[in-house]
Simulated assay, not measured.
Amino acid sequence: MLMQTPLFIRLAAFLLLFLAKASFAQPPRGPLVVSPQVNADKTVTFRYLAPSAQQVLLNGGQFGSSAVPMAKDTSGIWSVTVGPVKPDIYPYSFQVNGVTVMDPANVAFFPNERFKASLVDVPGDTPLVHALKDVPHGTVSYEYYPSVSGTTGSLVIYTPPGYTKNTSQKYPVFYLISGTTDTEETYFKVGKTNFILDNLIAEGKAKPMIIVMPYGNIAARVAEQTGKPKPADPVVRDDAEAVSRAKAFETDLLTNVIPYVEKNYRTINNRDNRAIGGFSRGGGQTLRAAFGNMDKFAWVCSYSSYLSPQEMDRNFPQIGANSANTNKQFKLLWVSVGSEDFLYKGTLEFMDYLKAKNVNFKSLITDGGHTWMNVKKYLAETAPLLFK
């Protein structure tokens, strides 16, 4: 009498055979690559696996290392050590045989409409204001709202520690806008807005607030969601096209974003509890939206941006013509820029215009250029001033 093999034994044998074949089908794994590696002396080692590459360079000009040659070892890993590097968060990339690429060993990247650089965080011996500390933490959420031309807009929203527990408490709102080619994620992933606010609130330096981070490029989003090519960014900061796009953002902010936030979050819905701020293009959008809607915002923060005297006189003459009212309406008008910023000269001219018109403002000029390292400084300086 023939005996049949039990079903579970046959299935187990089949599974073993399948796994054996699958293992042979897998390509060989390369060596483990650790990159970036921040060393105790604040030097940073970068590595890239490319056995067949002829040349690999490190790009990281914002921390002093641009097109630095890397050396290849016997396992095909290219590496270089730079520094010591001043503690901060820096973007970098590699050039592999002339092609710019991200670091595949690093999950941290710079959100951008174009090339997305990798990020390296060099911590300070004393934790920096954007560092993750042992304090109560707020929550970061992604939200989607109905926007212009039938599109869906996207927001990143920070709610402060205690928001989910103190369900009867309402909060002021800071609308924070990123720059050209940045996305709604940039203030979160590069600017570390949530950690900065967590730390300032824990130290009693800033009031608990909601921060809303929208995407500033309405034209690009409409094009993307309607199957059209992304339009080029305006070359001149105050030409008709730039002003028109800023107006489109302003319309979306006032008619879609703010109503959505105030419907879905516990907000204090008046001008004294609304702030607006932005970096670069977002700074220009900030100034235009605030100057054109003084009934909506009482706190205004311009980071590395300005409006020209010509545009001020043409579109916002009331700001200088009735400076007493301007000073009464705005509880804070902040202007900041780096001394090496390509917008430095224009920002100084904007400050001089405000001074000549007797418009009150606070200013901060730092070293450095048009960078997110400076943006974090400006945010850390202005957040404690809001809603006081």
Rank of each mutant, 00 (worst) to 15 (best):
F188Y: 14
G76N: 14
K345T: 12
V82K: 14
A105V: 10
N217G: 03
L343W: 06
K357N: 08
T74E: 15
G64V: 07
G138Y: 12
R271V: 07
G292A: 08
S35M: 07
L379G: 00
K42P: 02
P161D: 06
L379H: 04
M1P: 14
F109M: 05
T226R: 15
L343A: 05
Y144P: 00
G283Q: 11
E311I: 09
V56Q: 11
G162F: 03
R271P: 01
P234E: 00
Y265I: 05
K376D: 00
W299H: 09
F46W: 07
R281V: 10
A117H: 12
D313K: 09
K247D: 13
L385N: 01
T193F: 13
A290G: 01
A40G: 13
G30T: 04
I218N: 02
N97S: 12
G282C: 04
R245P: 05
E241T: 15
D238N: 09
P229Y: 03
D41K: 15
S304H: 00
G64H: 07
D272M: 07
A223W: 08
Q329P: 00
F109E: 03
G320A: 03
E250D: 02
S93A: 13
P31R: 01
P146K: 09
N315R: 12
I9K: 13
G153L: 08
L15I: 09
T100N: 12
S35G: 04
T74A: 15
T159F: 04
L19F: 14
V257M: 07
K42T: 13
P229D: 06
A117I: 00
L2K: 12
I268F: 01
V56L: 10
K86V: 15
V33A: 02
L155V: 11
K86A: 15
K331E: 00
L379V: 11
N358Y: 03
L155F: 12
D367G: 15
E250G: 01
F291N: 02
S154C: 11
D367W: 05
F94T: 07
Q26I: 07
A242E: 12
L333D: 02
V243L: 15
P214W: 14
P161N: 08
G284V: 12
V235H: 10
I89D: 01
K86L: 15
E262N: 15
K170T: 08
S244T: 14
D103K: 05
F18G: 01
T382P: 04
L354T: 06
Q318F: 07
F387E: 00
S154A: 15
A275S: 02
P84S: 14
V173R: 10
I9W: 12
P229L: 04
S75P: 06
F316M: 01
K189C: 00
K133V: 06
V56Y: 09
G138A: 05
K207F: 04
F361A: 00
G216V: 06
L176F: 14
P234I: 05
S147G: 11
G216I: 07
V235M: 05
V129H: 05
L49H: 07
L348N: 02
G283M: 10
E185T: 10
S149F: 13
E381T: 06
S35P: 03
K42V: 11
Y90E: 00
V129L: 09
A242W: 12
F115D: 11
S304L: 03
P317R: 06
G284R: 13
G60E: 09
